[in-house]
Amino acid sequence: MIARRLLDSGPLCGALGAAGLVGAWEAAGRTGFISPTVFPRASAVLSRAAGLAADAGFLSCVVSTLGAWAIGLLLTVAVAVPAGFLLGTLPGLERAFGPVFEFLRPIPSVALIPPALVLFSDKVDMKITLIVYAASWPVLINTMYGLKEVDPLAKETLRAFGFGPAAVLWRVSLPSTAPFIAAGVRLAAAVALIVGISVEFLAGGAGGSGIGVFLIEAGGATDALEYIVAAALWAGVIGYLSNGLFVLAERRAFRWHTARTEVAR
């Protein structure tokens, strides 16, 4: 009975799953199934990860990457949301730009890093510019999609009470599009991190720092894998927490949205 109830507890099972994986990983190293020279043991990686948390060099790299990521995302929202509203509310504009976007969008954003390396002298500017370019697409597209989903009856209701177009945009279109925008921003956050770290790989130490630079430099060391896995663990923790915060904020702010879609299901 007690075992049954314990198995129903999500956090406990999750912790057990993680502990099991780490245990198996450590055991594989101890028993010689995987040689520690090929792949480091769990204990070595975890102690390295603990060491990195106190390593000023690593911390400044993390701050540098996250700083560019945050600035890039803020700029993305500032650019892409108004652009999405303009394109979504003025059909002529969408007709003119839509096809051009359809050709620009499939270009994998990281392919722009080589020409950007030539064009930009400041590597931080370059990183942020590329982040904004790549992260704008999901926000722009979700904003336009969300605007199309606004219920015409909701708009008409407000118009029937005599409100003008600006009030309809502010009181109906914006709130009902907001969940879509938020989902776009969450997607954009992942894209921004991918582009930011990729830029750091390619720009290297020249004028920049960041998790990517740290890893490329660690790659030359004899215990490179230990560093790389430990750093990836921290990146995972940061990504997990930031994604969790996004989801939590969305759930709180858009309770009306999730509650309704769950009822509809």
Partner: peptide, 21 residues
């Protein structure tokens, strides 16, 4: 011309005409 003042509408589809947010 435009929506007159002093006029209100109740639509059939309450779930769409009330604002869920």
């Amino acid at each position: 011309a435009g929506t007159p003042k002093d006029l209100a509408v109740v639509f059939q589809d309450y779930s769409r005409s009330l604002f869920p947010w």
